[in-house]
Each structure stands twice: as structure tokens, then as C-alpha cells.
């Protein structure tokens, strides 16, 4: 083997070794972070548990980690909680899907027809500025204490988020892309489908992620006000009978659901937006 190749091979070997080393270092850093995170959780739960057991705080008001874990265990083993989870997810999901579809379509419509957006602009702004949660009592009056009023509330929250984001996305398309596509022969419909739509996808996804969280808020707030089932109902019912443990259990379930949904959304986004430059930490 000529000496040049030997040098090249040695070089390649060195590069590979460096790369391996970097990967190892990264993995170690990740592990350290995970351990620290667990540490924070343990410290917090420990302090909470200690404070309630040591008589520093009355567990009647703040419950305690061991009480909550026991309550959760009971709720899941008896299966009583699944109805409530199911109802809340069902309401949030229906509100999310209908709100997202309506929001995306109207966002594109407003972006496409300038006159429409000029006329409707103040109304959209006004409705969007109104804290929609304040509409909950009205929705309950109109649509009853069942599932429908919660779906409508979730819808009303989601629809504007998606409308505003889709509109912004469709309006912020890089003008160079529009011009070059026209020069390559794109007609109006092709511009919408092949340039404006894909270019708005990141904006729409940002809206969907936010919308999903808000759909859950809508469902739970509706349930807290008045309902027959759902995690919000569980919270307000438990609080009504001074069962703080029950409140915390429902809150923790909500938290886990929200985080799982967000992760699901992020995974979908990563898959669909492969073309975007990788940004570390997202």
C-alpha cells in the first residue's frame, strides 16, 4: 500500500475516533441532564411529603405525593378514571379537529381574497381579543351541560389560533418564491397549492400545537363550570367536597395528557418538515 493511502487511512481513523468521542460525550451529557431532572422531582416531592408529614402544612389543603399516588393507583386499577379521561379527550379532540379545519380554511380564504380580509379584519380582531372562556356560560346555556357545549368552547378557542396563523403564513410567503414560480409558468391555482400552501405549513403547525393545548383548556374549563363527566368535572367535584388529593390526581393526569399530545405533535411536525434546517434543542 502506498504511503499516501496509509496517511489517508490514518486520517480517516482519527476523524472516526473524534466523531465517536463526541457522540459519547453527548450521551453522557444527556444522561447527566436526565439525572438532574429526576433529582429536581425527587427533591420537590420529598419536600412536599416531608412538610405534610412533619406537620408543617396541613395535608387537608395541599394533599401529599404519597396520597396522590395512592389515589391515582386506585383510580386506574378500578378503571373509574377512564370515563373521565375519555370524555375530556373526546371533547378536546372534536373541538380541535373542527376548529383547526375551519380555522385553516378561513385563514386561506382571507389570505386569498383581499377584500374579504379587509372587510372582516376588525371583526376577526374583536372576536380574537375577546377571552373566549368568558363565553362558556353562554355556550352552556345554548348547548346544554353535556359534551356539545365543551366542544363548541374548544372550537371557539382553536379556530382563531389557526385562522390567524394560517393567514400570517399565507401572507408571509417569500416573494422571490412567488415570482420565480410565476416565471416558471405557475398559474394562480398552482401558486396556491404548490407554493403558498407548503410554505404556510410551518405556521399552521405552530398553530396546531398551540391549538391542541387550547382545545384541552376549552374542554376542561367547560367541565369545571358544569358537567356530568370529564377531568374538569373531577377537579371541580373533588374541590367541592374538599378532596384536594382528587384535585391533584386529576391535574397530574391532565398534565401528562397535555405533554403526550405535545410530543405527538412535535414528532409529526419533525416528520413533515424534514426539509427545514435542523435547529438544536427543538
Amino acid at each position: 500500500m502506498p504511503p499516501v493511502s496509509v496517511a489517508a487511512a490514518a486520517e480517516t481513523g482519527a476523524v472516526e475516533a473524534r466523531e465517536r468521542h463526541r457522540k459519547l460525550a453527548r450521551r453522557q451529557e444527556q444522561l447527566r441532564t436526565t439525572l438532574w431532572r429526576l433529582g429536581v422531582l425527587v427533591a420537590f416531592a420529598g419536600a412536599w411529603e416531608g412538610a405534610t408529614r412533619g406537620g408543617l402544612i396541613n395535608p387537608f389543603w395541599v394533599s401529599g405525593p404519597s396520597l396522590i399516588v395512592a389515589d391515582l393507583w386506585k383510580a386506574f386499577t378500578s378503571g373509574s378514571v377512564f370515563l373521565h379521561i375519555g370524555v375530556t379527550l373526546y371533547e378536546a379532540f372534536l373541538g380541535f379537529v373542527t376548529g383547526a379545519v375551519a380555522g385553516i380554511l378561513s385563514g386561506f380564504a382571507l389570505a386569498r381574497w383581499d377584500r374579504l380580509s379587509r372587510v372582516l379584519d376588525p371583526y376577526v380582531t374583536a372576536l380574537n381579543s375577546l377571552p373566549r372562556v368568558a363565553l362558556a356560560p353562554l355556550f352552556i346555556l345554548w348547548f346544554g351541560i353535556g359534551v356539545t357545549s365543551k366542544v363548541i368552547l374548544a372550537f371557539s378557542l382553536v379556530v382563531f389560533i389557526l385562522l390567524v396563523n394560517t393567514y400570517a403564513g399565507a401572507k408571509n410567503v417569500d416573494q422571490d418564491l412567488i415570482i420565480i414560480s410565476r416565471l416558471l409558468g405557475a398559474n394562480r391555482r398552482q401558486l396556491t397549492v404548490k407554493v403558498i400552501l407548503p410554505s404556510s405549513i410551518p405556521w399552521i403547525f405552530a398553530g396546531l400545537r398551540l391549538g391542541l393545548a387550547y382545545a384541552l383548556i376549552g374542554a376542561v374549563v367547560g367541565e369545571v363550570i358544569v358537567a356530568q363527566a370529564g377531568l374538569g368535572f373531577l377537579i371541580s367535584h373533588s374541590a367541592g367536597v374538599f378532596n384536594t388529593t382528587g384535585v391533584f390526581s386529576a391535574l397530574i393526569i391532565l398534565m401528562v395528557i397535555a405533554m403526550l399530545l405535545n410530543e405527538l405533535m412535535k414528532a409529526t411536525e419533525r416528520k413533515l418538515l424534514r426539509w427545514r434546517p435542523q435547529i438544536p434543542g427543538i
Binding site: 422571490d176 415570482i179 420565480i180 416565471l183 409558468g185 407554493v195 405549513i201 426539509w275
Partner: peptide
Amino acid sequence: PRIGYMFARDALLPWR
């Protein structure tokens, strides 16, 4: 479209 036009900025569709 029989006239090709090229800019200083690449103006490539980033999702393609």
C-alpha cells in the same frame, strides 16, 4: 415560460 430567468438569490422552494 420559454424565457428562463435566474436571480442572484437561489429562490429554491425549501420543501423540495
